[in-house]
Simulated scan of single mutants.
Amino acid sequence: MIRRSGSVSGTPGQHQPATSFERMPVPGVETDLLQWLPPEVREAVAHAAVRRHVGAGGFIFQHGDTGSAMYRVLEGTVRLSLMRVDGHQMIYALLGPGECIAASSLIDNHPLPQTAEALDDVQLQVVSAAAFAKLRRDHREFDDALLHLLARRLRTLSIQIATARLADLTSQIALRLLELARCDARGRLVVTVTHTDLAMFVSVSRQSIHRILKSFAADGLIALHYGSIELLNLEGLRARAEFL
């Protein structure tokens, strides 16, 4: 594993008090811990957390690090990935506002299994290991929410494994587009990843990705823009994603 400098967990001088808007889950994000919490426990999480800024290209944590906090994305995009010593990289997920990461390592005290990198300017809500333990002790609802979060992640991982083993490449790309789509400022449903990054998700060549995206565009399922892919026909993409 190639380890790179620049991890920002624990970087001094970048902590700010949590603000009120951070107490509410982001609609449409399935793995936001706050969606399973009552208002008073959301308030406790907000008070226990601090804000941290990570500039584009900065590392939040790296594979093999000891878990020191749970992170909730407030703004920007975080890439979870793993890299071999020869530089070959696999991308697990791109996480946007509302997504929570690194909670599992605080539960079982195992090293972090992936590297988390900021793709653009990222604002994080950070709950330290001590604050995390106190929330678990003081609020049964917080522990229940963690179970929901881990169950949702396990279900997603099971689907990804099945897709990799059983689905053809067209289905895999359609599934990834649906999984990665987010609403932009204009209300469009878009995926803001490069063709190279999309190829890393499914371990194929960039040329194969380009060919399938062009066919989706020709069929009116997507529109290819500079720096983004706009989803135009969700039902059509879901039909292409079916593999069982």
Results as ranks from 00 to 15, higher is better:
R176G: 11
V73A: 03
D144H: 09
T192F: 00
I173E: 00
P111Y: 11
F142A: 01
A103M: 07
A69L: 03
L231W: 00
V78C: 11
T31N: 11
V202D: 02
A174M: 05
I2Y: 12
M1W: 09
V204N: 04
L157M: 13
V29R: 08
G220N: 06
L37W: 03
P12D: 15
A93K: 05
V45H: 04
V126T: 11
S105D: 12
L157K: 09
A46H: 04
H88I: 10
Y226M: 13
S105W: 12
A174D: 01
T194G: 15
L221M: 08
R188K: 08
V126L: 02
G96E: 00
F142R: 02
T194K: 01
P113Q: 03
L34H: 11
I60M: 09
Y71K: 00
R206H: 13
L221C: 12
F61C: 08
D184E: 03
Q123T: 07
A217N: 06
R84K: 15
L112E: 10
L232G: 02
V26K: 06
L178V: 09
A103I: 06
H15D: 12
R238C: 02
A48C: 01
P113G: 02
R211I: 03
L169E: 06
S158P: 00
I2L: 03
A131C: 00
A130R: 13
